[in-house]
Computed example of a mutant assay.
Amino acid sequence: MNFHTRKWVKPEDLNPNGTLFGGRLLQWIDEEVALYAIIQLEIPRTVTKFMSEIDFVSSAKQGDIIEIGMEVVSFGNSSITLKSEVRNKITRKTIICIDKIVMVSLDEYGKPFKHGKTQVEYVKDRLKED
């Protein structure tokens, strides 16, 4: 799993218990997965279709640094399926795992759009001159 993004847990990210608000964490995950999918598929209209069961296994508190990891599971005709793990950067303790997140590319009418991708591509490889 590649950990692409780090977030610093600030006071505005906390719930009434003083720990990281789950909704804020899901927002961060959804945004990171969307950015990754859009870059991979090269389709700006790529949206979240499905997230599997969400199980918070530990929490984070103010001042913690967390990192969001993701990994491609598979490519569909118009979709990309990923999994994600969020962990505490310092302790490496897992905060949440999501086994399946499906992102779907859409055409200008909001219908699934075939992206033609079958494997992970790296931007550095796309920029190579022939």
Rank of each mutant, 00 (worst) to 15 (best):
L82C: 14
M70V: 00
L106A: 01
I39N: 12
I96K: 01
I39G: 00
D99E: 15
D125Q: 10
V9G: 06
P16D: 06
V57L: 07
I29W: 06
V102E: 12
I38H: 01
V102I: 15
G76V: 04
R45F: 04
P16G: 09
K124V: 12
S84W: 02
R87E: 06
N15E: 10
E108I: 06
K89M: 07
Y122N: 08
H115K: 01
L26R: 09
F113T: 00
L20I: 08
M70I: 01
L41C: 06
K111N: 12
G18D: 07
V102A: 05
K111F: 08
R92Y: 01
E12M: 01
V9W: 05
P112I: 04
D64K: 10
K61W: 00
L35M: 10
L127W: 03
F56Q: 05
V72L: 07
M51H: 06
K93L: 07
N77D: 11
I96C: 09
L35Q: 12
Y36A: 09
Q40A: 05
M103I: 01
T81S: 11
S78H: 04
T19I: 09
G69A: 01
L35I: 10
L35W: 11
F3E: 01
M103T: 00
V33G: 06
N2R: 11
I101E: 08
G63V: 03
P112E: 03
H4W: 08
M103R: 10
E85I: 15
Q27T: 15
F3W: 02
S74P: 01
S84F: 04
K93D: 12
V120Q: 09
D30N: 15
L26C: 10
L20Q: 04
L82T: 14
K61P: 00
Q62F: 06
G22C: 10
G110R: 03
G69M: 03
I101K: 07
A34R: 15
D13I: 02
I68A: 01
I68K: 00
S58H: 04
I80P: 04
I95A: 05
L14P: 06
G116D: 11
I95R: 07
N15A: 08
M51D: 03
R24N: 08
D99L: 06
I101T: 12
N15S: 13
V102Q: 03
H4E: 13
T81Y: 00
D64R: 07
G69P: 07
D64S: 11
K100M: 11
G76A: 07
K114H: 06
S79H: 08
S74V: 02
R92E: 08
G116E: 09
W28C: 03
K93G: 02
S59M: 10
K93S: 11
L127F: 12
G63E: 10
K49G: 14
G76P: 05
M51A: 13
Q62N: 09
G63H: 06
R6A: 14
R6T: 15
L41K: 00
P16K: 08
G116Q: 11
L26W: 07
L41M: 13
